[in-house]
Simulated assay, not measured.
Amino acid sequence: MTYQGVLTKMATEFSQPIQYYLVFENDFINMNQLLNKTITIQFVGYQCLNCSLYKAIYRQGFCKSCFFDIPQAADWIMRPELSTAHLDQEDRDLEYEKKVQLQPHIVYLANSSNVKVGVTRKTQVPTRWIDQGAHEAIEIVEVPNRYLAGVTEVALKDFVADKTNWRTMLKNEIVDENLVEWRDRLKQYIPEAARDYFIASNTETNIEFPVLQYPEKPKSLNLEKTPNYQGVLKGIKGQYLIFEDETVFNIRSNEGFVVALSVQ
């Protein structure tokens, strides 16, 4: 059976283990059902997630012109502390920025390759943690806008990492941590403006991924260099497909690529 469509990040369902769905325009695939099956991924072309034109993807699934124009790719997306909608100041599109920035945001700790701090909209919990391949996570503060979450994250980055090592995450070389202790230890470094939003009552969320075999030396699949790849699917973690030959394919990094996916 062959499916064809534009890659976007896999949809997930929180269960034990996580259920993954690859969604195309006219079809979707429950990827968990493909474990131990041979999959062929063929690169067909590009389709910008914004303008839908056949243009090379620059970043985040967008062509270069869209990336530097649309609010969905503005700097405050990756750096929440640059948010300005709470000041009624426009960056690229104030209406969109108010819609996204002026809603509850969570600052959290997640353990994927190590303990790291991050920010997400409240509506994206636990999806954000799943997408990062975190096997455990905990909320630190819930604030009313993206800016406050961003400045809290910046303050905490002096004392805890803010990046995931994708190789360590995929090899599952992880150590369980007491995130409640981490949270309580970091409380003193939360900025005064966000201190009243500290969450003291919640516990860790634990996440199980559908992985039958972890790679020892993961190597990333680049569809532009290898436009036709075939392998046996052995696991899914974060937004990565893990294959028997230790090839890994990051769906999120290939958003906007049109592929044909065949299952044997």
Rank of each mutant, 00 (worst) to 15 (best):
V119R: 00
M78C: 03
R128V: 00
P71Q: 10
D245E: 14
G231C: 10
W76V: 03
N36A: 12
E192R: 01
V23R: 08
V154A: 15
K225C: 10
R195A: 11
D131Q: 09
Q47I: 08
Y197W: 12
G5L: 01
T8C: 09
Q230K: 11
E177H: 11
E142S: 09
N32K: 12
T205Q: 08
I130N: 06
D196Y: 09
T38K: 05
G150P: 09
K187S: 04
F24E: 06
E13Q: 13
E246I: 07
S15A: 12
S253W: 13
L241E: 00
A155P: 11
T123H: 03
K234M: 09
L94K: 01
V211I: 10
K217L: 07
Q264T: 14
C63H: 06
N32I: 09
N222G: 02
L156M: 08
T127Y: 10
K219E: 08
S253V: 06
Y3C: 02
I77S: 05
Y20T: 01
F159V: 09
G5T: 03
I138P: 01
F198Y: 14
I199D: 11
K98P: 12
R92D: 10
V232F: 01
N222A: 06
K187Y: 03
M78F: 05
T164E: 09
P104R: 00
L221Y: 05
A137F: 06
L7I: 15
Y58R: 02
T38A: 02
P191E: 04
L94R: 02
T8H: 11
L87S: 06
S83E: 02
A161K: 06
D91E: 12
L82D: 13
F243M: 12
D184P: 00
V248R: 00
K116H: 10
L223H: 11
R92L: 14
Q4A: 13
Q47P: 02
K237D: 01
S83K: 05
Q4L: 08
M169T: 05
F62V: 08
T84D: 00
T203W: 01
F62A: 13
R195F: 07
F243Q: 04
D245Y: 10
R183Y: 07
L34G: 09
R167H: 06
R252C: 12
Y20I: 01
A137M: 08
F14T: 01
Y96L: 05
L53I: 03
N114M: 07
Q47D: 07
Y214P: 00
Q16H: 14
E13I: 14
E177M: 10
L156F: 11
I130F: 11
N254E: 13
T247H: 10
I18L: 03
L94I: 06
N178Q: 14
K116F: 13
I251M: 04
K225A: 13
G5Y: 03
I199Y: 04
K171C: 07
E173P: 02
I140D: 01
Y189A: 00
I130G: 11
F243W: 09
E97W: 03
D245N: 14
F28P: 00
L186F: 05
S52H: 14
E204G: 00
H135T: 03
D131N: 13
L94S: 04
Q239T: 08
L34M: 07
L34C: 09
